[in-house]
């Protein structure tokens, strides 16, 4: 591989929360977290509940404002510190190259599944009919019953919602993909499909940081595992060393 540069380099990332409503109670999300990812690398994050895994992912996506540290992201031959980049820059990156899949699907009620996916592409300049065709392909790939395509996912089962959620991120072929327990409520068959789809993305150059509670899924996806306890890094190991 010729493009073995650091796509993402997190240095000393710390996130604290000050809860003003509880007499300025101070909570630690994560502390002094550092790691870097080569372009095309997949990294898993594991650790007990409350260890700070989601905090890291949300800081990278900037849903959380980091308290200290740097999140250097390399794009277009330039380094951008996601911890400090202006909001507009973050919005642009989210539209163009950084996608995030949360545990739960958040969508506008009433919008049909096929449009939720298609919108991702029309926002990126695709013509509507082409976007819809591609959206249908992804729904099919995710084993969503065609009878559901034109209805809103707000009525779907948890597993179906999760698949739409993933499809919505995958369809954009993001350069950096952030996943927070994306396979939690999937059946074995769909897990397989998701693993395939993610590995396919990796072949196309996507870099990924993902939280997986399912070690089996993780094993088949990631190169390295980042283990956290109490907000800190416990170890970073190659997947083979972990198993």
């Amino acid at each position: 591989m010729s493009d073995q540069y650091d796509l993402l380099s997190v240095r000393g990332l710390t996130k604290n929360f000050t809860l003003h409503l509880q007499s300025r109670k101070f909570l630690r999300g994560c502390e002094d977290v550092s790691f870097s990812l080569k372009a095309g690398e997949f990294m898993g994050v594991v650790g007990p509940s409350g260890a700070g895994k989601s905090t890291i992912i949300k800081c990278i996506y900037r849903s959380y404002l980091p308290s200290a540290g740097e999140i250097i992201y390399r794009t277009g031959g330039q380094d951008i510190d996601l911890a400090k980049a202006p909001d507009r820059e973050i919005i642009r990156l989210r539209r163009r190259e950084i996608s995030y899949v949360s545990q739960f699907l958040k969508v506008i009620p009433r919008v049909p599944a096929v449009d939720i996916l298609a919108e991702q592409l029309t926002e990126r300049g695709w013509p509507r009919n082409k976007a819809k065709d591609r959206a249908a392909e992804y729904l099919e790939m995710m084993n969503i019953d065609p009878a559901l395509w034109d209805t809103s996912p707000s009525t779907f089962s948890g597993g179906e919602q999760q698949r739409v959620n993933l499809a919505r991120a995958l369809i954009t072929k993001p350069r950096l993909l952030l996943l927070d327990e994306p396979t939690a409520s999937l059946d074995a068959e769909t897990k397989k499909v998701v693993i395939q789809a993610l590995n396919q993305l990796r072949k196309q150059g996507t870099t990924m940081v993902g939280i997986f509670h399912d070690t089996d899924v993780m094993k088949r996806l990631v190169d390295r595992v980042f283990t956290m306890t109490s907000g800190r890094c416990k170890s970073i190991k190659r997947m083979q060393e972990v198993v």
Partner: peptide
Amino acid sequence: GLTDQILEDPQH
């Protein structure tokens, strides 16, 4: 700020 940041990590 970003809407999701305002909702998920409100500062003030």
